[in-house]
Design a binder for these strands. Structure first.
Length: 321
DNA sequence: AACATTTGACCCGC
DNA sequence: GCGGGTCAAATGTT
């Protein structure tokens, strides 16, 4: 029923982005030839990009073989009816499905904003977790049958970080979400700005990413692709701004474009800790641009980490290179 | 008025 | 039976 159209496209997009990033880094290397240090940096970036591409390719190949689960059926058509808190009659039976039946990607990240318009539909206290989990669906779930969902939960061990699980892919045509694709595929300047925005203030993504491969018919790379497709939003506020302005940035993401929505979105996940104002950090680029890299690079080996990129984009004191 | 979030209730899988 | 995921009325914001 759901329009499951995009299949391998997101994956292709990821690969394209990665290759493009590599190409751009190559160009940059040429430009920075007279600076040995810069050259080394770019060299490392190139190396990382290449590895990422290979890793992604390998992962794709692996998952291709193990995909099997197909769609989740909506069993409950006639089954469950809500009693309706207010006393309403038969509410529509929920088409419940366990979340991980479609492609999922779980990331630990500090900036939960990803450029898509999400609508919160629930929140739950989770057993053995200090923080509740918030449930979001794509704003265009109904008008465009977009099946994307995400779940956000603050990490117990790192209150600044969030575990975000993306379920399904965006099939909607949310202009906001599409923007980045257009940008980075056609404009080097934008590509550059993305790099730069890899996150100044601690908004760096952490490394852990897991993808589960049960797919519906669409294949599994969507999750990552989805993330890759996350667009860098308009970005003025992010860099030099304080927490207050980040809301403004977020507001550009929210369907209604209201700052209230932005604030709400922030609170949505930060619920337990009202003082976590940076949830909606405006540094979307960190996510949209850098995340895909981090995602696929399997950073456990310690050779490549998003933080490196952060260090590259902004010398945040992470002068690793 | 329209749209989003909040929140308690409901449903389902384990 | 419990816990997690979702629904939808109530409420808030613009």
């Amino acid at each position: 029923m759901v329009a499951m159209a995009a299949a391998a496209a997101p994956y292709a997009q990821v690969m394209e982005d990665m290759r493009r990033g590599r190409d751009l880094a190559t160009q940059l290397q040429a430009l920075l030839r007279d600076s040995p240090e810069a050259g080394r940096l770019v060299d490392r970036i190139l190396h990382a990009m290449s590895r990422t591409i290979e890793t992604a390719r390998a992962a794709a190949a692996a998952e291709e073989g193990s995909e099997g689960q197909s769609e989740v059926t909506c069993s409950g058509s006639g089954a469950g009816k809500r009693k309706a808190a207010g006393g309403g009659g038969d509410k529509r039976a929920a088409c419940r499905r366990r979340a991980h039946n479609s492609s999922t990607v779980t990331v630990t990240i500090k900036d939960i904003e990803d450029g898509h318009a999400w609508r919160k539909y629930g929140q739950k206290e989770i057993q053995n977790s200090k923080h509740p989990k918030a449930y979001f669906r794509c704003t265009h779930k109904y008008d465009q049958q977009c099946a994307a969902q995400r779940q956000v939960q603050r990490c117990d061990d790192d209150p600044d970080a969030f575990r975000v699980t993306y379920i399904g892919v965006h099939t909607c045509r949310d202009p906001a979400a599409i923007a980045p694709v257009v940008l980075h595929s056609s404009d080097e300047l934008h590509a550059g700005s993305r790099l730069i925005s890899f996150a100044p203030n601690a908004s760096a993504t952490t490394a852990s990413t897991t993808t589960t491969g049960n797919t519906s018919q669409q294949g599994d790379h969507k999750g990552a692709a989805l993330l890759a497709g996350l667009r860098p939003l308009k970005q003025e506020a992010g860099a030099g701004a304080g927490a207050g302005e980040q809301e403004e940035v977020l507001s550009s993401l929210t369907p209604a474009g209201s700052s209230a929505a932005a604030e709400a979105a922030r609170n949505a996940v930060a619920t337990p800790g009202p003082d976590q104002g940076d949830v909606t950090s405006g540094l979307q680029h960190c996510y949209g641009g850098g995340f895909a890299v981090a995602d696929m690079a399997h950073l456990d080996d310690g050779t490549f980490d998003l933080d490196d990129l952060v260090g590259f984009g902004f010398d945040q004191g992470q002068d690793e290179f």
